[in-house]
Design a protein around this nucleic acid. Structure first.
Lengths: 78, 78
DNA sequence: GAAAGGGTAAACATGTATGTCAACTTTATA
DNA sequence: TATAAAGTTGACATACATGTTTACCCTTTC
């Protein structure tokens, strides 16, 4: 486990929290977002809990589903 | 090739251009960044040319190497 | 011309994100 | 209690990002 890996996991968690925050702000359930994205709810849960090294494609899909800019998903502290 | 895929590829290209812009602003070559990240220069070239669905880990690594916030990498139009 | 630096590209291996399903917990509501 | 909705987790399959090597194209500089 390198330092970069630790930073990555911390970042995954913060991004997941931010995605959850945006989702809840739009009053959407994980299942709502999953269904709009045509993802399984498992995927949304994994992302919000910082258990995945998310790809740009997934970020684009989530941002479209929640009607926000991707840059807004990166608007968090640290 | 779905509409989402087309949006993704357009996004990959814009992000790649933005990464290149930031790198050149710091007067770094692709090889410089690759060496700091411990990546092969092939990887940097693929990313800047929008040929890869980049992961968060790679974004974190590039941002650390170029000493910018990840959010700055998403600061481009559209 | 030759050599070196910067960038691009194809091919293959490996690791892992996501797809998918099943089972579980938690919370709310009746 | 029980019923349902929301969320979590584990397991396995598939697709693809990245690691790596090799080879190539441009410039520039000698």
């Amino acid at each position: 486990m390198s330092i970069t890996d630790e930073i990555l996991i911390a970042y995954q968690k913060k991004l997941g929290q931010r995605i959850k925050e945006v989702r809840e702000g739009k009053e959407l359930s994980q299942l709502d977002v999953a269904s709009i994205c045509d993802y399984d709810k498992t995927t949304i849960s994994r992302i919000e809990n910082g258990r995945t090294n998310i790809t740009l494609k997934t970020l684009v899909t989530l941002a479209l589903a929640m009607e926000v800019d991707i840059s807004q998903l990166f608007e968090f502290k640290d």
